[in-house]
Design a protein around this nucleic acid. Sequence first.
DNA 1: GACATATTAGAATATATATTCTAGTATATA
DNA 2: TATATACTAGAATATATATTCTAATATGTC
Lengths: 193, 193
Amino acid sequence: MGRKARYDKKQFIRGALKLLAELGPAGVTMNAVAEEIGAPIGSVYHRFVSRDVLLAELWLQVVESFQKNFLKALERSDGLEAALHTPRWVRAHPKEGKVLLLYRRDELSRGEWPDDIKAHAVKLAEELNTGIRSFVTQMFGRMSRRNLNRTVFVLIDVPHAAVRRYLEVGAILPDVVDELIRDTYHAVYKEVV
Amino acid sequence: MGRKARYDKKQFIRGALKLLAELGPAGVTMNAVAEEIGAPIGSVYHRFVSRDVLLAELWLQVVESFQKNFLKALERSDGLEAALHTPRWVRAHPKEGKVLLLYRRDELSRGEWPDDIKAHAVKLAEELNTGIRSFVTQMFGRMSRRNLNRTVFVLIDVPHAAVRRYLEVGAILPDVVDELIRDTYHAVYKEVV
DNA sequence: GACATATTAGAATATATATTCTAGTATATA
DNA sequence: TATATACTAGAATATATATTCTAATATGTC
């Protein structure tokens, strides 16, 4: 019932993603998003309550994309694969990579989120959390704050740090990145592996 | 010649630093800066051409503060000390730490910088660059892109990554941070040290 | 003490964007 | 074919902040 839609959420999010990767947060104005896909601004607001929510959905989509295979590697107890997932994912998804690694969530979307979006965020956070915790238990035999810290560092923080520098200047990720991540992985897990 | 100043640059920068660390970039409005130190907004503009320039000067001051002892450690060819400088400096300068590690320069100050500020930035960048390069030469016997990459990773990227997570949530830096930085250092430099 | 001027004061203005609002359009359903 | 309504359209509005502007004020110099 009612007229057929010419533009849907996906298109607006794709447009916003492009603008965000190319111009940064300030470039993602509602007019720019509309223009990017040739829609009137009214149609953007027909889909998203606010810019804040549009960016929130974009953010969650990016996080979900990143986490998907990262968690799969963890489930296989393949820590090294999980650590190397970051550069690989970034190579395959350059725009998403920029969003995840160059901006902070609260820089993109600051207001209160609607319940469904908040729920989605909680779900993703919990998935990541339990994924890492069960990996730690597998890996070390038991959970401890220290082991958790080391794992988060090796599987997430270091890979992100290794990649970020290149994304900032828009350079292609060299292979050294993977090499460094690998070295760090073995160093920090030396007692275990 | 003229009346005595009641407010100087330093005070405004200090005020902006506090706001930035507490509220993020959006909290650093010109009115807020003025209010922070009880000055009229006209006096802020009397000292700084624009918000952009105020933030540029703040940024350079923070970078300079960070680099000072970092470079000293490098000059002593003390790579480990240089790597550990990040968590130590952040503990000693929490507000500056947040600014340097949580925000990107172009997020704070986007416009064209006046010549003197640009010159200052170039000077700092060159100092860091030559400091690292001469350290690499000392350390490895010769300069190479690969050795430079490894060094930047170990001395800067990894320490920053280890610290960032805690700054984001306003937590005190635990000792694990130093431990992890140390482990990574030895791992990546294993052929050398 | 008078003058020149660096500085304080803060109200007024400019500008950029998010958001709202009203009108028109196309399609599913009856 | 009539009707309800999801959607398109984009002009008008609201709002937040940076910036400008004009008028005082105090202090060093003559």
